[in-house]
Design a protein around this nucleic acid. Structure first.
Length: 804
RNA sequence: GCCGAUGUGGCGGAAUUGGCAGACGCGCACGACUCAAAAUCGUGUUCCUUCGAGGAGUGUGGGUUCGACUCCCACCAUCGGCACCA
């Protein structure tokens, strides 16, 4: 009987499902292990071979830890709100919920056919009202704590479609669908005050076992910078504005100020003579998209307002300009310009012929701005000081005079939380006719998304929910006051910001999850997913987690203790897999032709988990070949256990077996599956060379293979004569003393070059080793008639003889 | 431009408290089995010098060291992130 993957895989998938083999029982007598995948968006095109890479890695860990006696939580679910379903609904008039259900069913079938050991009783779905009830509940708590607020924010408004578009739906200033023009239009939006957590999100990164690159990305994204805010008065008025600067020490070199075009003061201070020019400039800026303002704006633009600001340190009047190189959303939206020591200000000053006054010695300001350190000049009480001291001194001075203070600024912005969409969690807010606003009472949650057979744009920029009169209009039963529901919905990030909590207690009707269970299972021990979520998803989830920690819902400061980013699987032509490139590999085809086990094995063997490697059909064949080879070693043609495997205390394989157990155990622990597999191959190669494979070793091998390729693992375990699943069998152990040999091979080098190798007893001393080496014939040839300058001996390893 | 990562055979990749470079797999070559082929099993496979025996070699150039894929400096290339953040 040859290895029939279709039969075996079906058989064991049915067995696992029927016996609920992977059900997590909360067995308090065992240590816990929570291993999580980033849950997928169930797209219509189904799984591609990139998905199973991370899922296989977590599945190996889950199965490995079960064998080590851990109580394992390994769940899966669906991040099922999202744009494609909405677009499908707009196009076809069909219900996005049905469409989503169908996609989920397909995804689930595909995932199950790969044999992952999820506890399907914990499956969750962000579009399920019993799930989003709690997403809405969290929003209400955020609102109550002042962390959710409404602000006017520009959005991509497409008048022709009567709808707001996401950034990815806008291409070159035109709508992706239809190619209609898109403009920036301010609209009232819900914001979440993630900036209030900026410092903690930054600091607590240090405690996490995450890749350094991801931590660094988050640090850059938060972008903390220390500096000062300085007050500038507008000459001849009682108005003033604040600027943020990281170089307050260069205050004496400020020769002009710049306000962002959107700055509130612009209209108030512009002089009549400059009014026309300023308005013209503002108009141009408005039509530019964010992209154009940043990407393309190499050439600085701006215009003088006619007003002057008073530099607080020396009372000098300096012109106030507006320019779009100053961003309204960073710092105070205003800067003091020090062209001698800031490259951007330098370029601007050169272009508009503004004065450049050096205040730090060094560099050549004829050429470029000097941003380095040096003694200060032209700076009154700062003269002679270095950068650090000057910053300290000037801040003291500013604080003393009440015209500025030390200040920290962040690049991180508040989280734009509303979407003008139907297919998302409704934001549980009611706007009343008297202008007040309340949350939907918690006992009325979930606030369900109304069913409708007609999803179409409202035309006003509101979501399609605005069309559904009997949903959107409400009357307070007590007072008779009329109100209107919030028509914005939440972004896709919402549901994915806390789903790992719900897996812990997925059917709880009373709360997000039981406190005792949260205490048992948090934090997630290992979290694996793609690096594309390095910043947003992981930052948002950390933010919500910290908030829930603050209000006593969760017991830990951080959600994910260890994070790992798997690499991408590229197409055979080394390009990213995509439909348009025609290089997509569908796992269904591979499962049919080679089997799920082969796919899993191959994806783990391709290279290190974090690397991006091109798909190779030949490599896949090689993985299958290995499983065939294993099968032939264990199983006779009639399906019985091979005679080669028998009870025996033959010692031939002892060392390689113990080595294999050691290496595989350590490699699994560190997610180095490629080298673990290589060691399993080495072991099988050795087995082919010997007459007898002791049954103990054969069973140990099957246990080690099983987490990677569970179907064949179970089948071989059965062939070895076992009735029950291998899932909870104890992980094999190794004996360190079996690894050392009595004789070791020692390398003899002459001048650092390997000349010969000697077999010696493992505890040969330094002196003996040196003597043996010098006595060797080949060594003699090399040292004959030469001067021995030095001999380095590393016992058990090498001898290096340096000659002249 | 800034930040980070990576660079090893024909290919995917092993090897780092500094100590035998190329494990394992793919590909290729040869042999066994076969009427033959496939499959399988076995042997070999970094390059150069046609044996012997050497020599060179981990992106490039330098350095530290008895000894460097591994540590240090400079540079080049590729990938990822950010991008007027004051």
């Amino acid at each position: 009987m040859s290895y029939n993957h279709r039969e075996i895989e079906k058989k064991w998938q049915e067995y696992w499902e029927k016996n609920k083999t992977f059900k997590t029982l909360n067995d308090e007598s065992k240590p816990k292990f929570y291993v999580l995948d980033m849950f997928p968006y169930p797209s219509g095109s189904g799984l591609h071979v990139g998905h199973p890479e991370g899922y296989t890695a977590t599945d190996i860990l889950a199965r490995y830890k079960r064998m080590q006696g851990y109580d394992v939580l390994h769940p899966m679910g669906w991040d099922a709100f999202g744009l494609p379903a909405e677009q499908y609904a707009l196009d076809t008039g069909n219900d996005p919920a049905e469409f989503t259900q169908k996609n989920i069913a397909n995804f689930k079938r595909q995932i199950q056919e790969l044999g992952f050991s999820y506890d399907w009783d914990r499956e969750i779905n962000t579009t399920d009202p019993e799930y989003y009830k709690w997403t809405q509940w969290i929003f209400i708590q955020l609102y109550k704590h002042g962390l959710a607020y409404i602000d006017e924010v520009p959005v991509n408004w497409c008048p022709a479609l009567g709808t707001v578009l996401a950034n990815e739906e806008v291409i070159d200033g035109k709508s992706e669908r239809g190619g209609h023009p898109v403009i920036r239009k301010p609209m009232k939006q819900w914001m979440l005050r993630i900036t209030a957590y900026a410092d903690r999100l930054l600091e607590d990164l240090d405690e996490l076992d995450w890749p350094e690159s991801i931590k660094e990305m988050q640090r850059n994204w938060i972008g903390r910078s220390e500096g000062a805010e300085v007050v500038f008065k507008v000459q001849g008025t009682d108005k003033e504005f604040r600027v943020f600067t990281t170089r307050p020490d260069t205050l004496f070199g400020a020769t002009y100020c710049v306000l962002a075009p959107e700055h509130d003061l612009v209209k108030e201070i512009t002089t009549p003579e400059q009014k026309e020019k300023v308005e013209e400039y503002l108009k141009i800026v408005q039509t530019k998209s964010d992209l154009e303002r940043t990407d393309l704006a190499k050439e600085k633009t701006g215009v003088f307002t006619g007003a002057y600001a008073i530099n607080p340190v020396n009372g000098k009047a300096i012109p106030i300009w507006i320019a779009d190189y100053v961003l309204a959303s960073y710092g105070t939206g205003a800067i003091m310009a020090v062209p001698a020591h800031d490259q951007r200000d330098y370029e601007f000053a050169k272009k508009f012929d503004l004065p450049i006054i050096p205040v730090v010695e060094g560099g050549n300001i004829e050429q470029e701005a000097y941003t380095g350190d040096g003694p200060h000049i032209n700076s009154d009480f700062l003269n002679g000081l270095g950068k650090e001291d000057a910053i300290k001194k000037v801040i003291e001075w500013l604080e003393e005079k009440g015209v500025g203070e030390k200040k920290v600024s962040y690049r991180l912005r508040d989280w734009l939380f509303s979407r003008q969409r139907y297919w998302g969690e409704p934001i549980p807010i009611i706007h009343w006719e008297d202008g007040t606003m309340t949350t939907v009472p918690e006992e009325e949650l979930p606030l369900r998304l109304p069913k409708t057979n007609d999803i179409h744009p409202s035309g006003t920029g509101e979501s399609p929910l605005a069309n559904i009169e009997d949903w959107v209009n409400v009357v307070d039963p007590k007072t008779g006051k009329r109100g209107r529901r919030e028509t914005n919905t939440m972004p896709q990030w919402a549901g994915s910001s806390w789903y790992y909590l719900r897996y812990i207690d997925p059917h709880n009707k009373e709360k997000i999850a039981d406190e005792e269970l949260l205490k048992r299972w948090l934090p997630v021990d290992v979290y694996i997913g793609g690096a594309e979520h390095a910043v947003l998803h992981l930052l948002y989830a950390r933010f919500w987690h910290k908030f829930l920690y603050d209000i006593g819902v969760v017991p830990t400061k951080e959600p994910f203790q260890k994070l790992f980013n798997q690499g991408m699987i590229l197409g055979e032509n080394n390009e990213k897999m995509s439909k348009s490139r025609g290089n997509v590999v569908n796992p269904d085809d591979i499962v049919r032709s080679h089997g799920a086990d082969t796919l899993r094995l191959y994806e783990m063997f391709m290279g290190p988990l974090e690397a991006s490697v091109a798909w190779s059909t030949k490599g896949l064949d090689g993985a299958r070949r290995f499983l065939d080879r294993v099968w032939r070693l264990f199983v006779n043609d009639d399906g019985t256990l091979s005679n080669k495997i028998q009870e025996s205390d033959d010692k031939t394989l002892e060392k390689i077996y113990h080595q294999t157990v050691k290496k595989v155990t350590e490699d699994f622990e560190h997610l180095r599956f490629n080298t673990a597999i290589s060691q399993l191959m080495v072991f099988i190669n050795e087995c082919y060379k010997v007459e007898i494979v002791p049954k103990e070793y054969a069973e140990g091998f099957v246990k080690m293979l099983y987490p990677i390729t569970p179907h064949i693992g179970e089948e071989l375990w059965a062939v070895l004569g076992h009735k029950d699943t291998i899932t909870y069998e104890p992980w094999p152990t190794f004996d360190e003393s079996k690894l050392v040999e009595d004789e070791v091979e020692v390398v003899v080098q002459i001048n650092g070059k390997v000349r010969t190798k000697l077999k010696v007893a493992k505890d040969t001393t330094k002196e003996e080793l040196e003597a043996i080496a010098k006595a060797d014939d080949r060594v003699k040839d090399y040292i004959e008639g030469k001067n021995i300058v030095k001999v380095i001996v590393v016992p058990g390893k090498l001898v290096n003889i340096v000659v002249k």
